[in-house]
Design a protein around this nucleic acid. Structure first.
Lengths: 135, 135
DNA sequence: CTGTATCCTTAGGGATACTG
DNA sequence: CAGTATCCCTAAGGATACAG
């Protein structure tokens, strides 16, 4: 199904994000693709938040529907799919980094996240390039 | 109730935002406070998305609980509360601007939002100063 | 292991009545 | 008008069985 914003509650950019990827799970999958180098169903399943299999299937499909993620047969193992961010998904990077920076003020972070935020505040472009180089 | 992240699903900055203000309504209230100059219950009610009164009450209380919004008796009219962003709420500005910029690529925007995004991409600091000057 | 489907409980939230 | 409370229905999602 094509995800147009035609029947959204409003035409508002904040609302657009909320209605496409604004639930309690979707952005965690984006995070795993963007920062953790994950690409497979089983890898997403293993994340700390404990997503269940039916929800994961549903969100991966919705992410594909709204053009944030691609799905393709994995070349090395035809029984599974390889998930990747589209350019639309990749362009969420500044949003994700600003969310990280905001939360860092109030949440306990892992050392890896602390280092990320510190470097991002010092030299945002370097962080962006570094992350992009892993895609 | 104090909103600590102690019993969250994980310690992850993305998850922190999702569990504190990551539902389908909360960020719209933040938007109204941040960009639309709204400060009162009835003003939030009038937004295009059509939030209902019970949900609005609930979200305003949760925003207060997690330290994003303050509530105080309105000096001009003691029958209502005046809502404002705290510094924690104000520091969501870069997140909100990046969300707006992302959605602008895919959603139809109002002329006002188009102008905001255009100016933000040209001179982010100017946009930030301008918005802050309204707080 | 990669997903999908089903069952069932709970949380989200719309409509609306109600109080100050 | 500002805000709360209740009623009730639907969507979200956990557990888990199942198929390839």
């Amino acid at each position: 199904m094509d995800q147009s914003s035609a029947n959204f509650r409003s035409h508002c950019p904040i609302n657009y994000l909320l209605e496409t990827i604004g639930d309690k799970w979707t952005l965690l999958i984006v995070r795993d693709l963007m920062f953790k180098g994950k690409h497979y169903f089983g890898e997403f399943l293993k994340s700390d938040e404990g997503i269940s299999t039916n929800i994961l299937t549903d969100r991966l499909n919705k992410l594909e529907d709204c053009g944030v993620v691609t799905k393709q047969i994995d070349a090395d193992n035809a029984t599974r799919q390889l998930y990747n961010l589209t350019s639309k998904g990749q362009s969420l990077l500044p949003v994700m980094l600003e969310i990280t920076r905001w939360s860092a003020q109030f949440d306990e972070l892992t050392n890896a996240d602390k280092a990320l935020v510190k470097l991002y505040e010092k030299d945002p472009q370097q962080v962006i390039e570094k992350i992009k180089s892993n895609w």
